[in-house]
Design a protein around this nucleic acid. Structure first.
Lengths: 243, 243
DNA sequence: GCTCGTATGATTGTATACAATGATACGAGC
DNA sequence: GCTCGTATCATTGTATACAATCATACGAGC
């Protein structure tokens, strides 16, 4: 589905719908709107200086991305993500990132390999310096490189979608120094496995990398950041709370 | 993303956009439109007796589903699916169906278990009788039950999307008697693994089931059904032909 | 006081009008 | 004859007008 990425870059700059779509998505992912908050076509349109038409089209797309829920003749509401959703996404991603790393081992180009190595070294530098912002950037970029290197439009599309999706809850996780270092180390081992043309190892490492990222998030970020204080915090089987 | 399914059922009956969206999707998946064929808003609108507005909104959704590609200020074109795309989807699905079967083992309800057993027995009956149409229905339903039983909205959504997507190329594969029987047998073993609460086995069987389905499709259906006769048929590394 | 029906307003659903863009054909210039 | 520019047309992008639907408030009836 390369159209997807191409479209995003092209459309968004030149069409109102694209701008509305991306700005709304950013806003939702950044938490500007509360869960279950109603988005009114006219209000959004006024805020962005456009009519309802592009807003409506953006809404339809956001709905398909799962970011809002549209109830016919009623309204559009920011979707709630439960802890279980996040967990499920990470489990799904852990499998797909593994597959992606395996395929990347077989299809990565020298340029991509180069950038990946550079990414890892740069990340180690910034980690030592405590530059958390750059570190987050590099972390995102590392995964994007991996996605592109797997040479599969379908898988790349899926993983980028998931990646975007979890940014909504991941924001601050990486600013934990420990995880930053550990994450780097894991990236480095994945990179080396790919460089050494070891698909099995790359798959296993990428797989485990996701699981570690999730477990770290649960330990450090997720609960504190999103739970209501009055609710219990023990590990429920359900984890169905909206975050 | 439960909104997705709920919306589909509610919206589609009551809104023009929903009807246009679903009918177009069906038409594309059923091959009514050729690859890269241009879809004009006005033409589609006239065909379905609606104005351009709902058509446009449906287009935006179809684009996000990867079924059409919209080039700004130019037009909407039916997306090409390459053999490699199909292969990638099956590889991705093989992992996710495995995960789904594992989770289903842990979360399936008695009612779902009941329906799944019934499905398997019915399928065996229809296979003996040579009722290929019902068999295909039951095959689809088996997987839907599995998706619902895993008790994960996210995974269910993903797998249903993929399932829909590959229907576009799968149409006639199951009408091979052998595969029909083999597929049934695999369903039965998956069902039994779930019934016996053996997640590892269920995962492995579902995983392998997808791989088998793909390999069978390659052997029997894919090439004959879609390749141009003048093109070579050997197993190219690329499999990048548009089908 | 409570319930139900109706009226009113707000919001979305759809159609259409207008603007902007891209494709094509034709003709002038070389 | 070929190339390039321009005019025209088809198509999409956007805005707005109107219709349909839903929520709310108010009042009649019990």
């Amino acid at each position: 589905m390369e159209h997807y990425d191409v479209k995003q870059e092209v459309t968004d700059r030149y069409s109102l719908r694209g701008r509305v779509f991306h700005r709304l998505r950013e806003d939702i992912l950044n938490g500007k709107y509360a869960e279950h908050e109603e988005l009114k076509e006219m209000t959004i349109g006024e805020e962005m200086g456009v009519s309802r038409t592009p807003v409506r089209e953006a809404f339809r797309q956001l709905e398909l991305e799962g970011l809002i829920q549209i109830i016919p003749n009623k309204g559009a509401y920011v979707t709630g993500i439960t802890q279980k959703d996040v967990k499920d996404i990470y489990m799904i991603r852990s499998l797909l990132e593994g597959l992606c790393a395996r395929w990347a081992t077989e299809h990565i180009t020298p340029e991509q390999m180069e950038e990946m190595e550079e990414n890892v070294y740069l990340a180690e530098f910034h980690a030592q310096k405590g530059h958390w912002e750059q570190l987050a950037q590099l972390d995102n970029r590392f995964h994007d490189i991996l996605y592109e290197a797997c040479d599969s439009k379908m898988l790349e599309h899926q993983l980028k979608d998931f990646h975007q999706y979890v940014l909504r809850v991941r924001k601050k996780t990486l600013s934990q120094e420990n995880r930053g270092n550990q994450s780097n180390e894991e990236h480095r081992r994945i990179m080396e496995a790919i460089r050494d043309r070891n698909p099995e190892l790359a798959e296993e490492l990428a797989h485990q990398h996701m699981i570690n990222a999730y477990e770290n998030m649960v330990r450090n970020g997720l609960n504190e950041a999103y739970d209501r204080p009055e609710e219990s915090r023990e590990d429920q089987g359900e984890t169905s709370k909206t975050i």
